[in-house]
């Protein structure tokens, strides 16, 4: 065992010097990654809330499109969808200014479906009594949703929503395939020049992880805030 350990040539697996020197290039990539991730989270959440609420509507012409949308987006791979968007849409005469925009549009649309499901289930998990109490106090639908249901649903939706956010951050790596020069693309660039892909992939992985740890910290803080009214006995 020890023998095996000693004979590994670590410099082939990970070269700290190369990793350190490539940080500036990787940070350039990270910037793009964060831009895509940030906008995708934002639009996926807004779109997700909208579609989530639509999917619960009693009105068929609101519910049906939402259901079909969710089904399609959850049922197709993000990468395939990005290909269709980036290479297919120009055929229709519309061209994305940059692949970054295509990535943001594609990721927002795709992850909105997951957000919609999280929001639907969170709203449904608020007890029916809350709706009835609000109704008996003459509160309207929008008012009840905004002041009573959503604050409680938010607490329930937080952990799965942050799961999606982390998926979005990691999912930005797919954008490298449609030529977006984000974090993974940058690391592959360096890897191609130095013939040391392992160092670059591991470094990229660590950077993704750090970003997700920071995001997890925000999740923690938000959860504490939204749980403050519970079990204070």
């Amino acid at each position: 065992m020890i023998e095996w350990f000693n004979q590994i040539q670590w410099e082939y697996l990970y070269d700290p010097e190369l990793a350190w020197n490539s940080v500036p290039v990787l940070l350039e990539g990270l910037k793009i990654t964060m831009i895509i991730a940030f906008f995708s989270m934002f639009f996926a959440l807004i779109l997700g809330i909208l579609i989530g609420i639509m999917s619960m509507s009693k009105l068929l012409f609101l519910r049906m499109p939402a259901k079909i949308y969710i089904s399609f987006m959850r049922g197709t791979p993000l990468l395939v969808f990005l290909f269709i968007l980036y290479y297919g849409i120009p055929v229709l005469g519309v061209e994305f200014r940059s692949p970054i925009v295509a990535a943001i549009v594609g990721m927002s649309m795709n992850f909105a479906a997951y957000n919609a499901e999280v929001i639907r289930s969170a709203i449904m998990s608020v007890p029916r009594g809350q709706w009835e109490a609000s109704a008996s106090l003459q509160m309207g639908y929008i008012q009840t949703l905004r002041r009573i249901i959503i604050p409680q649903a938010t607490r329930i939706a937080l952990p799965p929503t942050f799961n999606i956010f982390m998926d979005i951050i990691k999912g930005t790596s797919l954008a490298s395939i449609i030529t977006v020069q984000e974090l993974l693309y940058s690391s592959r660039l360096v890897a191609g020049r130095t013939f040391d892909s392992m160092t670059m992939y591991i470094t990229a992985a660590i950077i993704y992880w750090i970003v997700c740890i920071i995001l997890g910290y925000f999740q923690d803080r938000l959860e504490k805030r939204y749980n403050r009214y519970l079990s204070v006995r």
Partner: peptide
């Protein structure tokens, strides 16, 4: 005005 078996106060 309605009072419910399960109270249904707004917990937040």
């Amino acid at each position: 005005g309605m009072v419910f078996q399960g109270f249904h106060l707004f917990p937040h």
